[in-house]
Nucleic acid binder design. Structure first.
Length: 480
RNA sequence: GGCCCCUUCGUCUAGUGGUUAGGACUCAGGACUUUCAUUCCUGCAACAGGGGUUCAAACCCCCUAGGGGUCACCA
């Protein structure tokens, strides 16, 4: 019973990592780390049409970005490899032959037209599943020979048992599929490649996978796969069908709901830990009730007993909030590193590192996504400052404004340098001198210095800008 | 349509027969403050419907409705 836990994530390389698949990967990984078992990456590339090497690479990259590592996989090897299905064809052949030999599978020579006819006939009877009538189940050698001479390339079908198939899913509970709801399905295509329901079983069996954790869209594939395990005489693994992730309209999450690739979220400036934290909370919850959970806590606490059965809507607002929490908790050095690419990409002329860190720190608590750093800091890197909105213009057109500006400029001349403390002192003096205070005092200066009515604390801005820049900006504001 | 799965605030969820049904996001209001934001406080808001079982049901059973998935030589 105390068999080693071995789980796998088995994406097909037909694009970059989808958010739904990423969630499956995350739960598998969390479970493996929680139990001290192994997490295996397997590439299911039997769909020759759609699979590509680039997709495989991008999946590795996205997984690495998330911080998910695997113990066995195409790139790192392992004792039950190879880990790319197209490199395992000899194994599928071997087991196909076994099934053919022990009578659990057979060659079917039906043409597309014949198949279509059967499908129509079944449809007329109100059946859409189990439409294949099993007509080639017991072909004689002579019949097979005749078909071959016609040039027909057979597929291999599994004899699906005429009985209920019941299994216990550790998230859904006991579920049974009644006999007759599935027909003899194809396990090997006419070109010799295995189909998903066959290859997955051969691989999971040979790779000693103990728990098959996947999206519940695979629930209805499970009886087929169990039939393969049984035909092979293999032990059936434990299944865990996790609920799907839905879009805001409650349909399966897809492109039309916006970004659905992990890459998209990475580019927008979401942090991997925040994304993992958020996604782990989709259909799972910590017994503590806490929501901001470190990866370590996630690993410590993750358990299928707390995975819910119902699907969850991907709530981007909450992800953004959570990402903001993570950004705020970042050390400034780290945050600056992460923001650097966005800033460089924006073409900003960046100051030396220590100054840059100060600048980034200024807007740290305003960020929900790293990408936003570009707009938040636009006023710092702009060539000139102009009031950005009508309201800003109004602030600067107030009667008391020029008084404030002149007073400010006079005070500025009295100091060698401008910094946080001196600025506060100056503002106090300006207020006393002009009698202007509060909003009317601060807003004009804010607009003069940043062009906007919202932004970071002014003393911080001034501290970074320094005396000369402030002087120039206020002087030019006087001419508006 | 057949089969399978699911159903607590708008969203994510806690809850396993006795709770004022709790928390989080969002939203609204307030406090703080030179603005925004942060932070803190307050508030709005839910057991899909109908039958049972029981002294007692969000929790157990049945039915209905709704949602999702799946019915390929895709995975």
């Amino acid at each position: 019973m105390s068999q080693e836990t071995r789980v796998r994530f088995a994406p097909s390389p037909t694009g970059s990592l989808h958010i739904g698949n990423a969630r499956t990967a995350i739960l598998n990984w969390l479970f493996a780390r929680h139990t001290g078992g192994s997490f295996i990456l397997r590439i299911e590339d039997t769909d020759l049409e759609r699979s590509s090497k680039e997709s495989e690479e991008s999946i590795y990259n996205d997984l690495h970005w998330l911080g998910i590592n695997w113990d066995e996989g195409p790139d790192v090897g392992g004792k039950v490899g190879p880990y790319r299905q197209m490199e395992r064809t000899h194994l599928y052949e071997e087991y196909t032959n076994k099934l053919l030999a022990n009578g659990h599978a057979y060659h079917c020579f039906c043409t597309q037209d014949e198949l279509e006819e059967m499908r129509q006939k079944a449809l007329a009877e109100g059946k859409t599943d189990a439409w294949y009538d099993g007509r080639h189940r017991n072909l004689t050698t002579a019949q097979k020979q005749a078909f071959r001479e016609e040039g027909r390339q057979p597929v291999v079908r599994l004899k699906y048992p005429d009985q209920d198939i019941t299994f216990i899913d550790i998230v859904k509970g006991e579920t049974t599929f009644p006999a007759g709801s599935t027909g003899d399905f194809v396990i090997v295509r006419s070109d010799g490649t295995p189909t998903y329901n066959f290859a997955a079983v051969i691989d999971d069996g040979l790779m000693k996978i103990s728990h098959v954790i996947r999206g519940d869209d695979h629930l209805s594939n499970t009886p087929k796969q169990i039939a393969v395990y049984n035909a092979l005489g293999w032990k059936v693994p434990i299944f865990a069908h996790i609920p799907m992730i839905l879009g805001p309209d409650k349909s399966r999450l897809s492109k039309r709901h916006g970004a659905t690739s992990v890459r998209g979220y990475a580019d927008a400036g979401f942090l991997p830990d925040a994304l993992i934290n958020f996604m782990s909370l989709l259909s799972w919850s910590s017994p503590s009730g806490d929501e901001i959970l470190s990866i370590q806590r996630l690993i410590d606490e993750f358990d299928f007993s707390r995975v819910s059965k119902s699907p969850a809507v991907f709530n981007v607002e909450k992800l953004e909030w959570m990402n903001g929490m993570y950004i705020r908790s970042l050390a400034i050095e780290k945050l600056t590193d992460l923001c650097l690419p966005y800033l460089q990409n924006a073409g900003y002329h960046l100051p030396e590192r220590s100054v840059l860190e100060q600048i980034v720190a200024m807007v740290q608590e305003n960020l929900e996504r790293l990408k936003e750093i570009v707009e938040k800091l636009e006023f710092v890197f702009a060539d000139k400052v102009i009031p950005a909105t009508a309201e800003a213009v109004r602030m600067i057109e107030k009667e008391s404004t020029s008084k404030v500006f002149w007073s400010f400029l006079r005070q500025l001349d009295k100091v060698e340098q401008l910094d946080f403390a001196r600025f506060r002192q100056i503002m106090k003096t300006v207020s006393e001198e002009t009698g202007v205070m509060g909003k009317d005092l601060w807003m004009p200066l804010r607009v003069a210095l940043t062009g906007q009515i919202h932004g970071p604390d002014l003393p911080k801005v001034v501290d970074i800008f320094g005396k000369e820049r402030c002087k120039k900006l206020v002087e030019s504001a006087l001419n508006i």
